[in-house]
């Protein structure tokens, strides 16, 4: 797997070949964050693909110096989160007409967050509870604890100080622990 320095050199050498290497190297982390940002599992790959295409379009306008300075992973994740935010705004403005408005994730009606939080699998419950956190806390928890980014990168993606990033992640994690206990009590 290529490191970022090699990837930046590859992008300068041949943008398209280099970009394919970028997708192969950072695809997992971008997809994992997309999976925790998109409402439906089926949308996660679309969202990740769209974010990568936006990144490619941006790179076509960058000169070599700018590419040489790029911190690829936080840059890609920032594009991903902006893409997700734009998609949500667009979806709110115009209802979907492609028949995908209802979650066809599973054959049976998908359980809501509350019901999913009551399932016994810890991972399923956490995934459901994550969706109930305020956006900044959720994003910080996903970046810090799901995809295991260093605090400096979490701060770069959230465009805040490392202290604030750490605090968002800690408060989000604490809220998850509290809500886990309360759903255990009520079941």
């Amino acid at each position: 797997m290529a490191d970022d320095e090699q990837l930046r050199a590859a992008l300068v050498e041949d943008l398209d070949a280099g970009f394919e290497a970028v997708v192969r190297t950072h695809g997992d982390v971008v997809h994992a964050v997309a999976r925790r940002t998109a409402e439906r599992a089926a949308d996660a790959e679309d969202l990740a693909a769209e974010a990568f295409l936006r990144a490619y379009r941006a790179l076509r306008g960058y000169d070599h110096d700018r590419i040489a300075r790029l911190d690829l992973r936080p840059w890609l994740l920032t594009i991903l989160l902006n893409t997700a935010r734009n998609d949500r705004r667009d979806a709110a403005r115009r209802p979907r007409t492609d028949g995908a408005a209802d979650p066809p994730d599973r054959a049976s009606p998908a359980p809501g967050p509350a019901e999913r939080a009551e399932t016994t699998d810890l991972g399923d419950r956490l995934a459901a509870l994550l969706a109930t956190l305020p956006v900044a806390q959720r994003t910080a928890v996903v970046l810090r604890h799901v995809v295991d980014l260093p605090v400096a990168e979490v701060a770069a993606v959230l465009a805040c100080s490392e202290g604030t990033a750490r605090s968002h992640a800690a408060r989000g994690l604490a809220a998850l622990r509290t809500r886990l206990t309360s759903t255990e009590d009520t079941s």
Binding site: E20, V23, D28, A32
Partner: peptide, 15 residues
């Protein structure tokens, strides 16, 4: 464990 790897098709989707 919630960090599921990307489907192998992601690079083909993009490039």
């Amino acid at each position: 464990d919630l960090a599921e790897p990307a489907p192998t098709s992601l690079a083909e989707r993009v490039v």
